[in-house]
Write a protein that binds this DNA or RNA. Structure first.
Lengths: 120, 120
DNA sequence: ATTAAACTGAACCATATGGTTCAGTATGAG
DNA sequence: CTCATACTGAACCATATGGTTCAGTTTAAT
């Protein structure tokens, strides 16, 4: 089984746990943007937006590059892969458990049907 | 496009951003457990573990039920689905952009090859 | 009836987070 | 050269987070 970089997972999930930052990612999904663009879009101070971008960059979810006096922000490659991998693996655990659960549910439904008939 | 419950996404991602809580989920993937079980496993006070479980439960990632004096914890259904859906949709944005990027990269490689030949 | 186990809630603590303002620095335009 | 733009860093603030201890309460076992 793959070994995950827990610190990186911490940073990535934390970065994703804020509605503004998810918004920024969505925005960058449409087009690259400067800090000013993003600050305007989300009605926030430049400094505030800079911090959000910093968090996203730390998590590898965006990449930025300073060109002249403007910092260009774009989606990063590195970030989401491990997160998606973790979710995926976790989903498997989940399914394994719910397979069992599904059977129980089916069993219950079958019984209900019978009970229903009896009550009629 | 699906509209996401942002508050719930906040809670879920935040819940997942802690290594102990991810560990708890993994543990519950193997078997249901009591608060005491989990506290022992992660070498933490009962109260501390209770808080973690509370966070996970709030996010719908676990379900608990008090049976006698012990609280039984198990994986929840409700939680991961929206998270997985968000990641999935986001992945699509990503791919769309990287498709374009790939083309650019290919283009650059092609040019480099030519330049390389010229320099020789 | 006693006692131990398992949890729960309140209070506390240190640090992190999400925001702000203010005072810079660096760069592009005229 | 001058000035506005775009960012950056420091300091601050309120609230949240991850943990603890201590003092209950409820339930199970003897």
């Amino acid at each position: 089984m793959v070994q995950f970089n827990q610190a990186h997972l911490d940073a990535s999930f934390a970065a994703l746990s804020d509605v503004t930052r998810r918004g920024v990612l969505e925005q960058l999904g449409r087009a690259d943007a400067s800090i000013t663009d993003l600050a305007d879009r989300f009605e926030m101070s430049l400094t505030g937006m800079k911090k959000h971008v910093g968090v996203l960059e730390q998590a590898g979810l965006v990449i930025t590059e300073k060109v002249g006096r403007v910092r260009n922000c774009k989606l990063g490659v590195r970030g989401l892969q491990e997160v998606a991998a973790w979710i995926e693996r976790y989903h498997q655990l989940w399914d394994a458990r719910f397979c069992a659960l599904d059977q129980i549910v089916e069993e219950l439904k079958r019984k209900e049907k019978i009970d229903g008939r009896k009550k009629k």
